[in-house]
């Protein structure tokens, strides 16, 4: 039992990311306000970022920047074990940019919806559409 709990707690950021995905998706489906849905979408994207960055982690190791890289690279070999993995961080830089870009386009469309119907509440928009 003890070890099961310890095992569970040791992966806490994976559980956290699952929780964030669920929260974000709930907001996207259950909320009726378009801006809240956009926020939910962003939470899902951020959760994926948390997942990737967790893969990169190595306990007690440092960021992947080689100190004094220019002076004496030949003298002591760089040990991969001493640095956390750079690749997921690179990938997530891309994912962050993508989520910013998606957010921008989503907000632009929300502005267009607002211009047209005068509201961002889905129920009211549905009423306006029926009136037409």
């Amino acid at each position: 039992m003890e070890s099961l709990l310890a095992n569970f707690l040791a992966k806490y950021n994976y559980w956290a990311y699952i929780g964030l995905v669920m929260i974000g998706m709930y907001a996207m489906i259950a909320k009726r306000n378009l801006v809240k849905k956009i926020i939910g979408m962003n939470i899902v994207q951020t959760a994926v970022i948390l997942f990737y960055v967790s893969i990169a982690a190595k306990k007690g190791k440092t960021i992947p920047i080689i100190a004094h890289g220019h002076e004496d690279t030949g003298h002591h070999a760089v040990q991969a074990l001493d640095y956390i993995s750079p690749l997921p961080h690179v990938l997530m830089l891309t994912a962050i940019v993508v989520s910013v870009a998606t957010l921008g386009v989503a907000l632009a469309l929300a502005i267009k919806v607002y211009r047209q119907y005068g509201t961002l509440e889905e129920d009211e928009i549905a009423m306006r559409i029926e009136e037409q």
Binding site: T73, P86, H89
Partner: peptide
């Protein structure tokens, strides 16, 4: 990447 970045590209920041 960690072991070859500096000798391949002369950039200490591997990211």
């Amino acid at each position: 990447y960690i072991e070859h970045a500096v000798e391949d590209t002369a950039v200490p920041n591997i990211v």
